[in-house]
Nucleic acid binder design. Structure first.
Lengths: 231, 231
DNA sequence: CCGTACCTTAACGAAATCTTTACACCGGCG
DNA sequence: CGCCGGTGTAAAGATTTCGTTAAGGTACGG
């Protein structure tokens, strides 16, 4: 990441765009702007920004196209801005690979916090810290080496089992939604196949838990998702 | 927020306006005044105050219009002043996005306390402390991780319980109307099912409060809604 | 061609959650 | 005093979501 980070704003509403530019410049980000989806794509190609702020309600095409196109070639963090209450938009945008969602009207402080968080995460991934090792009392996961040990014993996991565990480890201690897990492990087109999760969580528990009927690490959050607790 | 904070008073009654100006100036706030709704909007645009005190009984238009217009573009805290007994006005103003209400005649000390609370909260949001986790003395809510801790202990919440708590946390300190909570958690088609709220507020209190019969965080505002107070 | 490992899919009992109903409580008011 | 609206509590279904198992199906190496 360059320092300062470069941020691309794709937003047709002039006052909001101006406001964003001012707020971001004040935080020492370098700002690029686009008013339409196609101009946004052009700017993205030209500038290769570190993060994209994307309004969904654009004049020429919808913002979803922009997400799709960017995600075809890059993992640049994308924050979607959209009118409040468009729950469907939110789900669709996140399914297409957007990283976060902020409803308008928004509090600028919150938006800045989310930008910082995503830039931090992107930096971590670039530095390969993601390939480190996760340790809990009884479970040890070597993400780079693809090795899992339980109470000292090495345990063999199938590819999908490992990807699933990896997705949980990345957010250790936090709830990961069904949708997130499915998109991460099986891809966006399987984001509704919650049955996969039931089967594979069962298999992971059989391999990792002492008593798979009373799991201590792989916790179910009914109606929401799963969570890996440390310790 | 500038220091001192700037407060806009929109109030047609001269004695009250004068009294407010004196009280607020004594607290070192910078005060702007307007006597009508349209003048209020003009002042708001010109001054971009940190907080608005709004009387609902204005001569030219009603105060509701002012709330609507401000909320189209900003989250500036709004405290509504309303004559006693106008319960419906109060609820409508809050539904439109007002943050708090004070009935006339009011105790100046209480009004000042609510102003301080809203300014504090607005400052925190600007600094981006919100968005991720909410902290009160005994309760900690990790919104991203969907984890709730009470006095250190992790507490499990069902999906609806969590969404309800989340809706309260998002507006921590301010009154949230029955309608807003119902729309947020159950959707627009259930905006009249106030019984849901009684059942689930009861469950939240049982899980979060020391003594659910004497709640300290989840406060009932009879006839209006509920309020989460930060310990 | 066969065996092995793995993935997908369906079926069904169990568990958790949500909805609905019933009733007690409280304060104000005729 | 009884009535009433708004509120809080408890519990019985109804409904949704989970976990488990097992039966194909596919890919790959020997």
């Amino acid at each position: 990441m360059r320092n300062p980070a470069e941020i691309l704003i794709v937003e047709d509403d002039a006052p909001i765009r101006k406001f964003l530019r001012a707020s971001l410049s004040a935080e020492d980000y370098r700002v690029h702007e686009a008013m339409t989806a196609s101009e946004g794509m052009a700017q993205w190609l030209a500038r290769q920004p570190d993060l994209v702020l994307l309004d969904l309600g654009l004049p020429d095409q919808d913002g979803f196209t922009v997400i799709r196109q960017i995600r075809q070639t890059a993992l640049t963090p994308i924050i979607v801005l959209s009118a409040r209450g468009r729950e469907k938009d939110k789900v669709e945008a996140l399914d297409l690979g957007a990283d976060d969602f902020v409803a308008k009207p928004f509090a600028i402080g919150e938006l800045l916090a989310r930008i910082r968080a995503l830039l931090r995460r992107a930096a971590r991934i670039r530095e390969g810290v993601d390939g480190a090792t996760f340790r809990a009392t009884e479970i040890e996961v070597d993400l780079a080496g693809r090795v899992v040990r339980v109470r000292g014993e090495e345990v063999h996991l199938t590819p999908i089992e490992f990807r699933l565990l990896q997705a949980l480890v990345r957010h250790a201690g936090k709830v990961v939604t069904h949708r997130q897990l499915l998109v991460d492990v099986w891809g966006p087109q399987h984001s509704e196949q919650a049955q996969y999760l039931r089967v594979y969580m069962g298999q992971l528990r059989r391999k990792l838990e002492r008593d798979s009927a009373r799991p201590r690490f792989l916790i179910t959050e009914p109606g929401v998702g799963y969570r890996l607790v440390e310790g």
